[in-house]
Design a binder for these strands. Sequence first.
DNA 1: GTCCTAGTTCAAGTCGGCTTGAGGTCAAGT
DNA 2: ACTTGACCTCAAGCCGACTTGAACTAGGAC
Lengths: 127, 127
Amino acid sequence: MDEIGIGEVVRRSGVPASTLRYYEERGLITCVRRQGLARVFSVAVLEQLALIGVCRTAGFSLDEILLMFSPDGRPSPNREMLAAKADELDETIRKLALMRDDLRHAAACRAPTHMECPTFRRVLGQF
Amino acid sequence: MDEIGIGEVVRRSGVPASTLRYYEERGLITCVRRQGLARVFSVAVLEQLALIGVCRTAGFSLDEILLMFSPDGRPSPNREMLAAKADELDETIRKLALMRDDLRHAAACRAPTHMECPTFRRVLGQF
DNA sequence: GTCCTAGTTCAAGTCGGCTTGAGGTCAAGT
DNA sequence: ACTTGACCTCAAGCCGACTTGAACTAGGAC
């Protein structure tokens, strides 16, 4: 069967039950039906949760995620918005890559202060 | 002179004065001296703010940033931690790149539902 | 001297994103 | 029949990161 209880969702996604209920309340996920009071989810919710997780990491708010994807994981019909979000991500990724390079450099660099380090200053100039 | 008032910092960094005071209170930045009550900053604070901004975008909390960089912008002496943060960033960047590709794909894709789209499923499998 | 502008303090409020707690439901096991 | 364990609801609480507001100060223009 591809139907699972909330405990199984917690076990397989790592997302706490309280968060799942909260996400449902916010309209980010839905359960296929109830069995008594207990929610019954489709296994597909695991993919939706993965999607939500990445979006959260990307710095999107729950409201933004709602706008981007409907609760069944469909992308929003607003294709312009999706493309705009992709552009936002490009910019974020570019900065994070610089940041990562800088952190790696900082972990190795022996310049007396970070701000005096030419490598760092070159990196920071691009922000 | 390389000393500027808070208004100038706001103007040049885009960070509101209330946030600057809050960051100072949290120990993320410092002013070089006071003139009466008014804070006087070094222009270097602009670079520190850029650094803080990128770290925030990267999803680091203010406490984490404090641990990574001292208020003068020096990296933490804990080089292992910096390297670990860099690794975290690598992982984040990898996910965001997938996410971005997926968003771009979603903006163009005509599959009836997103979850049925083979491209998307391939992408999601990697999260 | 007094008014304006730019700054200040400190406490309280806001907002997003959850978490916690008290008390209830329900099916299964003994 | 009763207990256990997994689930539920609903209201309230919490945390991080700021923001807002009220009341104060300091320096310059008039």
